[in-house]
């Protein structure tokens, strides 16, 4: 895997805390691995939208990676509900190209960004840096990986 400059939270220099929502455990582990390579911590995982909401409430992560098609509650609805409760929530949708309308819908409902499956680490890294904006730093002072 490529090397990425570690991302830390600007406010306390601690690792960025992530919540991964996807019904496929494989997809979750895959993304988790990437996030860890960026120096982040995966604080929680959820396999469906309902769990995602409760997990968000409990963990208050810095960023959520949300799959679109999931059982019980779709990612869009979960994202919408989370954003309704927490306007500052940063949610990045994860989906394949075929679900473009869903992504547009999710963006309209408050998701901040999206990455397409299969997720590429460098794209995800850039997206996270973009979405987190000033809230993350690369303490090494090295320019971002990509």
């Amino acid at each position: 895997m490529e090397q990425f400059a570690t991302l830390v939270r600007a406010k306390d220099n601690k690792p960025v805390r992530y919540l991964i929502v996807d019904d496929s455990i494989f997809a979750r582990k895959n993304i988790a691995k990437m996030l860890e390579s960026f120096g982040g911590t995966v604080v929680g995982e959820a396999g469906d939208g309902c769990t995602a909401i409760t997990e968000y409430e409990r963990l208050q992560p810095d960023l959520v990676l949300m799959d679109i098609t999931m059982p019980q509650m779709e990612g869009i609805e979960a994202a919408e509900r989370i954003v309704r409760q927490h306007a500052q929530a940063k949610i990045v949708m994860v989906s394949s190209v075929g679900y473009q309308e869903n992504i547009v819908a999710a963006l309209q409902k408050g998701a901040r960004h999206f990455v397409q499956k299969p997720v590429k680490a460098d794209v995800l890294y850039e997206v996270i840096r973009y979405v987190m904006g000033d809230e993350v730093l690369t303490p090494q002072g090295v320019g971002a990986g990509a």
């Binding site: 190209v97 473009q100 309308e101 992504i103 547009v104 963006l107 309209q108 901040r112 960004h113 999206f114 397409q116």
Partner: peptide
């Protein structure tokens, strides 16, 4: 970019 509609929406946001 394979998902231009989404891109446009994102930019609008």
């Amino acid at each position: 970019c394979p998902m231009k509609a989404a891109a446009v929406q994102l930019v609008r946001n």
